[in-house]
């Protein structure tokens, strides 16, 4: 095997060459992951905020479940989604198996509990700070949720990032429901798995470096945004 420096050089070479296939794979990775994260946020943010901001019977149970679901094994999620979307399954007629949509569904299921559970924690902490003032102002339930979500927006960016990290690095679920079909459902992680199984470890590692670079860029961008917010005390 080559040393890490050569691997890195190969990765940079791939990027500089802007290999068409690689660009396609990266684009699909980002499309699938970002879609899943956006949908997961659309569901998980309000849900987590509800659990974090209100007391209701069974709240502790819901919290435990949410936290436990953060550890959902991707392969299990992939299997369940496969059984659902399979031609023999209840959602078979939608013909979504082996499409990017199927991968988005699987990743959404993986990411939503992460977003919801972390949102609950963030919102609960902020709620502790705001609760008396809100009660004094007579803030209603809807306004409360909206205000907490809005005021926690920069912390929630980090929450979305955690979801992004999980989704972008995930391989077990997407390979089952996507099928790793060339030019259709092949993403960064499934390509890495494929190249590893072909014994092309250098190429697999190079792709891993590219994936890492993407993750670093996304995180750096969000953190820069957050840092400016911290400076102005909005976070």
């Amino acid at each position: 095997m080559q040393d890490f420096g050569t691997t890195l050089a190969e990765a940079i070479g791939l990027i500089l060459l802007a290999d068409g296939d690689l660009i396609e794979i990266i684009t699909l990775s980002l499309r699938v992951t970002l879609s899943a994260v956006i949908i997961a946020c659309a569901i998980g943010l309000p849900f987590g905020a509800l659990v974090g901001a209100f007391r209701f019977p069974g709240r502790a149970v819901v919290t435990v479940f949410l936290n436990a679901l953060m550890g959902l094994p991707p392969v299990v999620v992939g299997l369940v989604v496969y059984l659902m979307l399979s031609a023999a399954g209840p959602l078979g007629p939608l013909r979504l198996l082996y499409t990017p949509t199927a991968m988005i569904i699987a990743q959404t299921i993986l990411v939503t509990p992460i977003v919801a559970a972390l949102t609950r924690q963030v919102i609960e902490d902020l709620q502790t700070e705001y609760s008396e003032q809100f009660a004094s102002l007579g803030v209603g339930p809807l306004d409360r949720i909206a205000a907490l979500l809005w005021d926690a927006r920069y912390s929630l960016l980090t929450v979305a990032l955690a979801g992004f990290g999980r989704a972008v690095a995930e391989v077990g679920a997407v390979i089952i429901v996507g099928g790793n079909i060339n030019h259709v459902t092949r993403v960064m992680t499934t390509t890495i798995a494929l190249e590893t199984s072909k014994g092309n470890l250098e190429l697999a590692l190079a792709l891993g470096v590219v994936l890492l670079a993407i993750a670093v860029i996304v995180n750096a961008a969000v953190m820069a945004l957050r840092a400016s917010a911290v400076r102005s005390a909005y976070a």
Binding site: L34, T99, T101
Partner: peptide, 13 residues
């Protein structure tokens, strides 16, 4: 945005 991106993949299928 989410619906759109999910929708975009539908034509492929």
């Amino acid at each position: 945005a989410a619906t759109l991106s999910a929708g975009l993949s539908a034509p492929v299928a």
